[in-house]
Design a protein around this nucleic acid. Structure first.
Length: 796
RNA sequence: GGGCGAGUGGUGAAAUUGGCAGACACGCCAGCCUUAGGAGCUGGUCCUCGAAAGAGGGUGGAGGUUCAAGUCCUCUCUCGCCCACCA
């Protein structure tokens, strides 16, 4: 076949043929084959496939294809995370129904995705916005409701005034809406929550058993934010009231010289109304979290006149403040102020002239100009009555117990708020009786269909409230005066369980049967964007645990390995953006150089399992196309004879290298190894047919169409993609004679050709006999380091 | 401010995990060839000195460990991502 192959013709031809032969449809099990589930985060159907989608799916496809050739029954599914704000906003803009817009986008995206040549099993395609899918999202909600994990609660929520909806904490970035950048307001509403805090410990502890990259585990742990500390009661003087504080430093209790409460604290609310006071506190409460944190961390507080708390350790009366640097939602909303050993408390104490009592002495006195503002490290207790002299870590438990406190943990993570006052989501399957009491919708009424007659334009209340059909449906089923829940679920609920559905996508009576789960779970590799390391991965782990506890999942952890990939930047090194006009259109490049070249180029661009950013280079793409052309051109110099020993060894090395590096997702070095092999074949006068076949099978995962075409040109009538992955002969990985580096005192002085099994003496005499190297070597030496096959180092 | 990660040619990056730094590719330079194409072929391309052989230097910076350091240790600078008053 000529070098300049016609990619348009052959790619279309083989895609059609694979589809006709159902080559990639994955049965639930195949005799003699092990199942393997490879997953990539499914995309939101934006209607336009960009390079990021290619990078996300076509590159892991290399791994999938190798695993198939290695004899695994590999499930590699595809679907659409279709609910959510973007579709709704797009539909409002175009004045059409989101469902229509999504349907159109999916059709377009599916066609584009098929041009990648990926080994997807299209028969398992899912769409989270289809009633067949969200029926089960609702069903899962009901299961959580039964267990008390889904609950209705009042709470301050983040409100986006532009999108007119509540946002999860995770969707608030720097106090602004992650989608539209509007400044988020705080609002108190009745909402539905999932009790993820009940699972916080397990979500941390179970990470220890997982073989994930450490940074990803750590990100999960930090996100959950477990702090071990103590809850300690402070009595309010001349009152029966007490305030419980949470502290990670109970060892500094003797240094607590004041008490601070969050403005939201119940004790503050219970105080008799004092106009001045409530005005000041009201001012704090009015501020949203951004304002509270934005003011240069300047701490402002209000003294509660006439109110004192009792430090349970010193028995001294201490003043009580209300300050907005204390967060209402974290810990107990109350903090003991230890100015000597906490920087925030120190700042506050300086401003309000509160006493600083040092109770910890650093193990080694601070060097340099003294008067440290405050010392936050560990040390030895002082000024702490009979605890003085103890090491701070040891004193934590003792002091806590001595004042009747208890050791406990607190978490940064808050319960998952799942209510959205938007249209395009799964309706929450709840109805309210005339008294306003919530009732779950019985399973037989699922899917509780999203009505099509709602006014979807944002106006501050849930769009579903405007649907006559929904209200009529509710009254018809439940009775007069009953009304539907009008909020929909956060899209993260839909995509927290989708991987179960791929296993059993057409099941009409179960969300995912245990039999199918047993065959496939857990997921061998889950690849996705770094931005989902915390939220999505955490939520899906949480939901899996909940289902596991109910006997509905076969595993407590869904992902054997989670991997993050990098991002592809524009050619100018900036992020791709329509605003910059620097987006890379993959369709155009596929048209010019073919899907095989685009796939292989993306594999070559950099290490895949590293979170980096890689600028696109059209020249680099063309370079990869040239490589593929050279492989095609090699078919014209085939011969039935044997290859040179060098070429044979190189082939064995390449088999080893490519296999190992695909396994560890280092696709870039695989491509490089294939280039080296094909360059060597190009330099050779002839190439044996058998070596060439091996090259093609190694290339098949990267360039599936070209490899298939060249394979058939050799006379094969079955697909190269069902061939066995080549194996190497470990005894043929090295030449008999190798190049050995010779150093003198650790400096390279030259190289010699030695037998690879040469002894130190043999290597040394060869070095001495070498015409250029020999004269440089000393006559005597004190030591020789010889590592067979690596180095000969002579120390004079 | 905290956490995590990364600093290697003009560019994307390799480096058997402590053993010849810069593989492979892009770009660039010189030459050849032509059916002028995003062509193909040959050679060159870390820096300094040198005609060359060769010598010296070199992986953000400064120290250290080692026969040997891009890789390990200490300090430091810069950049990226995430979180940010979490007691």
């Amino acid at each position: 076949m000529p070098r300049d192959y016609n990619h348009k013709e052959i790619e279309k031809k083989w895609q059609d043929e694979w589809e006709r032969a159902k080559l990639y449809e994955t049965p639930d099990s195949v005799a003699g084959k092990e199942n393997l589930y490879a997953l990539v985060e499914f995309p939101y159907p934006s209607g336009d496939l960009h390079v990021g989608h290619w990078d996300a799916f076509a590159v892991p496809d290399i791994y999938v294809r190798m695993k198939r050739m290695q004899g695994y029954n590999v499930l590699f599914p595809f679907g659409y995370d279709a609910f959510g704000l973007p579709a709704e906003n797009a539909a409002i803009k175009r004045n059409i129904n989101p469902a229509d817009w999504i349907a159109e986008s999916i059709t377009k995206m599916r066609a584009q995705m098929k041009t990648t040549g990926n080994a997807f099993d299209w028969s398992r395609e899912i769409n989270t916005s289809s009633p067949e899918y969200y029926k089960w999202t609702q069903w899962i909600f009901l299961k959580l409701y039964e267990k008390g994990i889904a609950y209705r609660g009042k709470g301050l929520v983040n409100w986006c005034p532009n999108d007119q909806t509540v946002l999860a904490n995770e969707q608030v970035i720097d106090g602004k809406c992650e989608r539209c950048d509007a400044v988020v307001e705080q609002k108190e509403l009745e909402q539905w929550f999932f009790k993820i805090t009940d699972y916080a410990d397990r979500l941390i502890d179970d990470l220890d058993g997982l073989d994930w990259p450490e940074p990803i585990k750590l990100a999960q742990k930090n996100w959950i934010g477990r702090s071990q500390g103590a809850e300690i009661d402070f009595e309010i003087v001349d009152s029966s009231e007490k305030v419980t504080v949470f502290t990670t430093r109970p060892d500094t209790l003797f240094g607590a010289t004041y008490l601070v409460l969050a403005p939201e604290h119940p004790f503050v609310k219970s105080l008799p109304k004092n106009n001045l006071l409530s005005a000041q506190i009201g001012l704090m409460l009015q501020k949203n979290e951004i304002e509270r944190t934005a003011e240069g961390k300047e701490k402002t507080g209000v003294l509660l006149e006439g109110i004192h708390a009792l430090n349970p350790a010193t028995k001294q009366e201490i003043p009580v403040y209300v300050a907005d640097y204390v967060l209402g939602h974290y810990g107990t909303g109350a903090v003991m102020g230890v100015p000597a050993h906490d920087e925030r408390d120190h700042q506050f104490a300086m401003k309000y002239g509160l006493p600083v009592m040092q109770v910890i002495t650093p193990p080694a006195p601070a060097v340099g100009n003294g008067e440290p503002a405050c010392y936050t490290g560990v040390g030895y207790l002082t000024n702490s009555q009979n605890f003085s002299g103890e090491f701070s870590e040891d004193a934590k438990k003792k002091i806590t117990e001595s004042v009747g406190g208890k050791l406990t943990s607190k978490y940064k993570v808050r319960d998952w708020l799942i209510s959205r006052q938007r249209y395009w989501g799964a309706p929450i399957p709840i109805v309210y009786d005339p008294e306003g009491k919530a009732h779950p919708i019985p399973e037989e009424h699922l899917p509780w269909v999203l009505p099509s007659d709602a006014d979807i334009k944002p106006k501050g209340t849930s769009p579903l409230g405007s649907s006559k059909e929904l209200i009529e449906r509710t009254e018809k089923i439940f009775g007069k005066g009953w009304r539907p829940e009008t909020d929909t679920m956060d899209g993260f609920v839909d995509n927290s369980w989708y991987f179960f559905r791929y296993l059993d996508p057409h099941n009409t009576h179960e969300f995912s049967s245990l039999e199918k789960q047993k065959l496939w779970m857990p997921i061998k590799r889950y690849s996705g964007g770094a931005e989902h390391t915390t939220v999505h991965v955490l939520y899906s782990r949480f939901l899996t645990k909940v289902l596991f506890d109910m006997g509905l999942s076969t595993v407590a952890e869904p992902y054997e390995v989670r991997l993050n990939r990098g991002i592809i930047l524009a050619e100018d090194g900036r992020k791709m953006s329509k605003r910059w006009g620097n987006t890379v259109n993959p369709d155009e490049h596929v048209k010019n150089v073919g899907a095989d070249a685009v796939r292989t180029y993306l594999a070559f661009i950099g290490p895949y399992n590293v979170v980096g950013s890689f600028p696109w280079s059209t020249n680099g793409l063309i370079g990869v196309r040239r490589f593929l052309e050279r492989v095609a051109g090699l078919s014209e110099k085939l011969d039935d004879g044997a290859d040179s020993a060098e070429l044979e060894i190189l082939l064995q090395q390449t088999i080893k290298k490519v296999g190992e590096d695909i396994e560890s997702m280092k696709f870039n070095t695989c491509v490089s190894a294939l280039m080296i092999l094909s360059n060597a074949m190009g330099d050779s006068a002839t190439v044996s047919k058998s070596s060439y076949k091996t090259l093609l099978t190694l290339l098949a995962p990267f360039a599936p169409h070209l490899a298939e075409e060249l394979w058939h040109n050799l006379g094969h009538t079955t697909s190269i993609h069902v061939e066995a992955w080549p194996t190497f002969d470990p005894s043929k990985l090295e030449l008999e004679v190798i190049t050995l580096a010779v150093q003198l005192n650790g400096k390279l002085r030259g190289t010699i050709q030695v037998n690879r099994t040469a002894t130190q003496d043999e290597a040394l005499s060869l070095a001495q006999a070498d015409p250029t190297l020999g004269p440089k070597l000393p006559a005597a030496w004190s030591k020789i380091i010889y590592i067979s096959g690596r180095i000969l180092n002579i120390i004079s």
